[in-house]
Design a protein around this nucleic acid. Structure first.
Lengths: 200, 200
DNA sequence: CGTATCTTGGAACGGCCGTTTCAGGATGAG
DNA sequence: CTCATCCTGAAACGGCCGTTCCAAGATACG
């Protein structure tokens, strides 16, 4: 039997993910990934195939471990608007404090970069957009069914608005917007979704 | 007397602006700008000083000729919410149709790229953010003074929400979102700003 | 026309890019 | 232990990067 890998591919991928997330695909070199992981370039090429595939794998890891769980938590939260409120609270926290502060969202960053032209990247971005929108819609449908959604708002349209709002939060947080400012802004936006006289 | 420039610097800057806008700073080379303008690299360096300064100059040109006029039109429009509605209509049109379709906003693109780490770039972005927010606030104050703003909304908070919404539109349009979808979403968001029973 | 001054074209710089190649070392089945 | 198999490290590839340098050309004053 052959030799076996001397490192954990997923741990290396996580390091690559962070570099791509923080600095973007264009300005992250294979050299930099090799330095960060402690691996030789040959091992990276043997494992992932090249920069394009490595970036895609990192993007998909980000979706799998960060975007999907957050959307699932939102979709599974049966409280209606409070679920939306907590989703944004967690988003702002993650974007403004801790290890990933001011990194923005890796997917939104990719939207704005040249890498968005790649069809496979675009597919990942579109899939994420749908997932987040559907999670918002589920939460808004719950709110509506309980009479806790403002009269003029449909869950479908409201969900699209909330996705754009989330994109805006991701953009602004990368430029250093404070958590307090973002919390306040999101609260104002969500206030428009609740009925004038909240039932609780 | 010396020789005189054999080209129009602002025309060259506009070509550079378009390249940076569409492809981003990291993936636009001086070579590419030279090819696009028909100029030699020496002329570019003699006129603009280097890639960093060229990119900054292009960014500032974008602000001066595109962002500032749009914000001024919004701030000078005394109709209140209809001014906001028309601002978004023009934005979506520019982002989805015509020459610059699917280029997004050069400033929002810069937010997401590595170039956002540059303090001078950040200053341009912050200035633009304030300008757009203040224009929105002016429009919302007008609406409020005429009783055409929903009860729970303050102009200051509403303006911040609208800026995030605009950022979201810019992000999504770059990924190919349709004008119809964006118009619909923006309309839903703006509906939340108007009083339940519109006065007109 | 001569000349001082600036622009221009083109070559050249070192350096990093993504990628490939290959010898040598590690592995585990037989 | 043998050996086929795969992995690793290091060197090398051509190519493009941003930038600098310099000779040749264009210009407008005297």
């Amino acid at each position: 039997m052959p030799d076996i890998k001397h490192f954990d591919p997923d741990e290396a991928l996580e390091r690559a993910e962070r570099l791509f997330w923080r600095h973007g695909a264009a300005t992250t070199s294979i050299q930099a990934v090799a330095a960060e992981t402690g691996l030789n370039r040959s091992s990276l090429y043997a494992t992932f195939g090249g920069k394009r595939q490595l970036h895609l794998a990192a993007l998909r890891r980000y979706v799998r471990l960060r975007s999907v769980p957050a959307c699932a938590a939102l979709a599974d939260d049966t409280r209606g608007l409070p679920a939306v409120r907590d989703f944004f609270a967690g988003l702002i926290e993650a974007r403004c404090e801790g290890e990933y502060a001011r990194w923005g969202c890796m997917l939104v960053n990719a939207y704005a970069g040249e890498e968005g032209a790649d069809p496979e990247v675009r597919a990942v971005l579109d899939e994420h957009h749908r997932r987040l929108r559907d999670a918002f819609r589920t939460a808004l449908e719950t709110a509506r069914d309980r009479g806790r959604l403002a009269a003029g708002v449909t869950p479908a349209d409201g969900a699209e608005v909330l996705v754009l709002l989330a994109y805006g939060v991701n953009v602004r947080s990368r430029a250093g917007a404070g958590a307090g400012e973002l919390h306040r802004t999101v609260a104002a936006a969500l206030a428009g979704l609740a009925p004038e006289a909240p039932a609780d």
